[in-house]
Simulated assay, not measured.
Amino acid sequence: MIYSRNAFSAAGEVPMVCVEHLEGAPLSFMTTAAALRMQSLTEPAAVIPTTTRTVKQFGRIQLPGAPWRYAVTSNGGNILVDGVPDMRWRIEVDAEVRAGGATLSEVSAELRTRIDDAWVTKLRLADHLFCYLVVKPKAVPEGFVTEWDAWCRQRGWSASQQGRKIYTMPLAVCKSRAVAEVRRRLWETGELAGAAKTFAAGDGALDAEMLRSADFAIRPRHGELEQLNWTHPNLTITRATGILAGEEIINWFLESAPA
């Protein structure tokens, strides 16, 4: 939904609005049309911002339509309720990660033995849940992600690359599970009818299970899932790429949700 300048693609002179600043500098944008339409999306639907970003990183974003009753951050590891992490959910996730295999400390220690400064610029631990590398994509050793993912899978984790970031994630930390939990809560309180459908959008491998689990899903014609040529019977793929794909996704939500 939001894009850095490097990810705009061929947007031309389309009017933009900045929706994220970092240390006072503009960082991420939407088209003005997408921002306006996203505000109206909250009328026919319960909108749940869902991201791999940490709680702190999500807090930098001024997404149109806020404030949000619920949001999912940390790839599903945290559910925010009125902006505050739900500790009951987080305790459940942490317990499942421990039961699933290796700890974050063990995984990150092994990862450090496999990387060097020639192609890695940062190694970050995210919300005490997972870790990721910021890399020079063209310098990543051939086969690294595949080999690292194979090591991780035997220990209850996985690895995937999205642009300049290589994520190492516990299998128990999953956006689809957190979205299903929020949907259950909204159904229990009567805010959603039992027949309400779930619509989802995403562009990376970490989004695939969420898209697969939704009743209807959409992805842009760019990003990791495009590179993987990933598809599913419930999936729509945008015509546009870059920031204009974000606008097309908003329009798809608006056209689909009322129906």
Rank of each mutant, 00 (worst) to 15 (best):
R164F: 11
M87V: 15
R177V: 05
I115K: 11
W68S: 12
S176L: 04
K197S: 07
D149M: 01
H128P: 02
A109R: 12
P170V: 03
D149F: 07
L129A: 04
L129F: 03
I166G: 06
K197V: 03
A95Q: 13
G101F: 08
D94M: 15
L104C: 04
R153H: 06
G101R: 07
F144W: 10
E147C: 07
W119Q: 07
A159I: 02
G143V: 01
R112L: 11
A66N: 06
Y167M: 13
F130C: 02
R164S: 09
R90H: 08
W68Q: 09
Q161W: 01
G143C: 03
F144N: 05
P170E: 09
G83S: 04
V72M: 10
E191F: 00
A102V: 05
V93K: 00
R164V: 11
D117P: 00
A99C: 13
S160L: 04
A126S: 09
A159N: 03
R69V: 15
V81D: 06
V120L: 08
R112M: 09
W89C: 05
E92H: 05
A180S: 15
G190H: 02
M169L: 15
I115M: 12
D82F: 11
W89K: 09
A178Y: 01
A99W: 06
W148H: 10
W68E: 09
S176V: 02
V145P: 03
N75H: 10
A172G: 01
W157I: 01
S105Q: 15
K138P: 08
P141Y: 04
C152I: 13
L80Y: 10
E188N: 12
A102F: 07
Q161L: 02
R69K: 12
V145Q: 02
E181R: 14
W68M: 09
W148C: 00
E96P: 00
A178T: 02
A180Q: 14
D94S: 13
L123I: 10
V120Y: 05
L125K: 01
Y132N: 06
C174E: 08
